[in-house]
């Protein structure tokens, strides 16, 4: 395993598996504790669509049998976990009989794409600004203007999204209001489609970036202030190294490491924020899928989407944890014998 000690790796893998297992179990238990029966709701939908339903009792029994709701709970649970492992969440009830996994596979690339884009932009802008704020040689304007602008970064992306949507899309009409690509373009690897995707993705990404970079900037500022007082920085200054060189090679390099750990803890909130941004922009990702499923009370889809998003979060945290020892050679995970 190269430089990662086996005990550390094992520890991380166990945490990852435990997270996924607990999430899957919670998602399974919760509807079963509910006073409302999902099968009843489905029947209610049928009744609403077709007037009175004849033989409602028989249909209810068939539904329950099909969903395995008459089996003992343990059997249901084992079956469920086995299905989750192969990403089988059953059939969507609203767009019957589509597989839930098909719906998710269709939505996932949009969500992952938007997230990677906004996270990378945010991380760079935020850390750069935070470093400049704490650097004693940066222009005064930077040091005064950024903290003032940063007050707005405590706002969740859904609020900034609404504001940007209103100004840039509804009022100025610079960007489209909703969707992930234009209705007139054919999806495919054509220039027109890519252009349309960028045009549509700009506002959702901007509304996430604008409110999340402040978190990094604040953290970076605090770390830079600590690093500034370190002996090696004083020594570098005494050696007469160029201030810019000291900033990049001595200060930012050391200050950015704890930021990566902070990033791992922040992933969950980022994901949840993006789900909501996708919902207000009707962006074709997991957020819209989830929202539509809530409207239709489509339980299998709600469960599947929640599970996959939690899985994504857990895997991202796991990857950050694995990468960290490579970035920071000071970290030894097995008590110092590596």
């Amino acid at each position: 395993m190269g430089r990662i000690p086996r005990s550390y790796l094992l520890n991380r893998v166990v945490t990852l598996l435990l997270t996924v297992w607990i999430a899957a179990t919670l998602i399974w238990i919760i509807p079963r504790l509910s006073p409302v029966d999902p099968a009843d709701i489905m029947l209610g939908r049928m009744a609403a669509g077709a007037g009175a339903v004849e033989n409602a009792d028989q249909i209810l029994e068939r539904l329950k049998a099909n969903f395995g709701l008459n089996d003992p709970l343990v059997v249901q649970y084992v079956k469920y976990i086995r299905n989750v492992v192969i990403f089988d969440f059953g059939l969507s009830t609203a767009t019957f009989p589509t597989q839930v996994s098909t719906l998710i596979a269709r939505a996932l690339p949009w969500t992952v794409g938007l997230m990677l884009l906004s996270v990378v932009i945010t991380f760079f802008i935020g850390n750069a600004l935070g470093a400049l704020m704490a650097w004693d040689r940066s222009p005064k304007l930077v040091r005064v203007a950024i903290p003032a602008a940063m007050v707005f970064t405590s706002i969740p992306p859904i609020l900034s999204g609404l504001l940007l949507m209103w100004i840039l899309a509804a009022k100025l009409r610079w960007f489209p209001l909703t969707g992930a690509y234009g209705l007139t373009v054919e999806p495919g690897w054509t220039w027109g489609f890519v252009q349309s995707v960028i045009h549509h993705g700009f506002l959702p990404a901007l509304s996430i970036v604008i409110v999340t970079f402040g978190f990094w900037a604040l953290g970076m500022r605090g770390l830079m202030i600590t690093v500034q007082g370190e002996d090696y920085v004083t020594l570098a200054k005494a050696k007469g190294l160029r201030p810019r060189y000291i900033l990049y090679r001595y200060m930012i390099r050391n200050a950015i490491l704890p930021q990566i750990t902070a990033f791992a803890l922040k992933i969950g909130l980022l994901v949840a924020g993006q789900v909501l941004v996708e919902r207000i922009f009707a962006y074709n990702g997991m957020g819209k899928l989830l929202y539509d499923a809530i409207l239709d009370q489509d339980f299998p889809v709600i469960q599947g989407v929640s599970f996959v998003i939690i899985l994504m979060t857990a895997v991202s945290v796991f990857l950050v944890d694995l990468v960290y020892p490579f970035v920071d050679p000071r970290v030894r995970h097995d008590g110092g014998e590596a």
């Binding site: 992933i267 949840a272 909501l276 709600i302 998003i309």
Partner: peptide, 20 residues
Amino acid sequence: DVMITIPPLLILVVVQSAWG
């Protein structure tokens, strides 16, 4: 450690859509 990586919103979505 485990619970800190689970985004609350997604579990609560399941809770509330099941419980009304």
